[in-house]
């Protein structure tokens, strides 16, 4: 899925205080609601009504089906918490849950470790190289996730390009196993998730005034010290946004782990598909989905206490 490339921060909804004589703001400085619009409204005014069709649409097409799934997890096949009990009673299933978390956390950390210096390099590189670095991040972002995961299989498998090359160069005598195991999952997911880390990081770092670093050094701080005590804290918002995006998306991944992982690397997403398509156990699949969704929403709720989650999804001006 080529997700939110341009879907970064801010929704400057015009919640301006009432001001009887709106001083014309410079063009581009927010949208001054025409003065005539300050009257009372019941549910919405004329403009607001335009947001209602999509709200209704998403309620019917998305939210109601989700609610039904949620309900079904308690009613299918019998009323009660049976599905959840079955899930938490069996180590096979709890292992999947643990594995999902471990994978998501590892992927987040690796993308952060790679993405942070990469984004930093983008901010200090000359304009031409900056564009090159940006395009390198954006090209995979634009291309089908399926295609990329499939390409990685071709590249990483025992008879794949990497192993063939290393073997023919005599650097290794046996192929290194890089697919159908945890390594494969990690490589694949990091490859897929890296843009989601780099883009918010870059957006934040670009806004950091580099003169602050010079100022710190001018005050006697060593460059490394200035970097750690000035630059890193200032980029925290980008780290948080990128990590949240990567972590939450990793939790629900299906395609990449299914293609690159082995039997021990099953994640929740894959288990849900299995339960529906092969076992036809709808109630249990629904319970799994409910667990995954609740975990995702709880994480978002926790994150929203520390960072402005809306800014991550709504585009910044």
């Amino acid at each position: 899925m080529s997700s939110s490339a341009t879907t970064a921060p801010d929704r400057r909804a015009p919640s301006r205080g009432a001001e009887p004589d709106p001083r014309p703001a410079p063009p581009g400085a927010g949208s001054p609601a025409p003065p005539g619009k300050r009257r009372r409204f019941f549910l919405t005014d004329g403009w607001g009504a335009l947001a209602l069709p999509i709200a209704g649409y998403l309620l019917v097409v998305l939210i109601v089906p989700l609610a039904i799934v949620f309900a079904r997890s308690f009613t299918d096949p019998t009323l009660g918490l049976g599905n959840y009990a079955a899930f938490f009673a069996s180590p096979i299933y709890t292992d999947v849950l643990v594995n999902t978390f471990v994978t998501a956390i590892t992927v987040t950390l690796i993308t952060l470790l790679i993405g942070f210096p990469y984004a930093y390099l983008m901010t200090i590189a000359p304009p031409v190289w900056r564009s090159v670095l940006l395009v390198v991040v954006l090209v995979p972002f634009w291309t089908s996730l399926l295609v990329r995961s499939f390409a990685l299989v071709l590249l990483l498998r025992d008879t794949g390009a990497i192993n063939e090359t290393l073997l023919s160069l005599g650097l290794i005598s046996d192929p290194i196993t890089m697919v159908r195991n945890f390594t494969g999952v990690l490589i694949g997911m990091v490859q897929v998730m890296l843009p989601f880390m780099v883009l918010p990081l870059y957006a934040t770092m670009r806004g950091i005034d580099r003169r602050l670093l010079q100022a710190a050094e001018g005050l006697g701080a060593r460059p490394a010290f200035a970097f750690w005590r000035v630059f890193v804290p200032l980029s925290a918002a980008g780290v948080a946004a990128g990590s949240l995006l990567v972590f939450i998306q990793s939790l629900g991944f299906y395609i990449t782990p299914a293609l690159l992982g082995g039997p021990d690397d099953v994640m929740l997403g894959e288990l849900i598909v299995q339960q529906v398509s092969t076992v036809l156990n709808w109630g249990f699949a629904s319970a799994l989905a409910a667990v995954l969704l609740i975990v995702t929403l709880v994480l978002l709720a926790i994150a929203s206490r520390f960072i402005d989650v809306r800014r991550i999804f709504w585009k910044e001006q």
């Binding site: 909804a13 015009p14 919405t44 947001a51 998403l58 799934v69 998306q249 629900g252 989905a289």
Partner: peptide, 30 residues
């Protein structure tokens, strides 16, 4: 509607609009 309108529960509507970005596709699919 969201940028220009005045709307009760605007935050909820805005959240609803980005819900498809948040809910894992496996769950949407199911």
């Amino acid at each position: 509607g969201l940028v220009r309108g005045r709307l009760r529960a605007k935050a909820a509507v805005a959240g609803l609009v980005i819900a498809p970005l948040i809910v894992p596709y496996v769950i949407v699919g199911l």
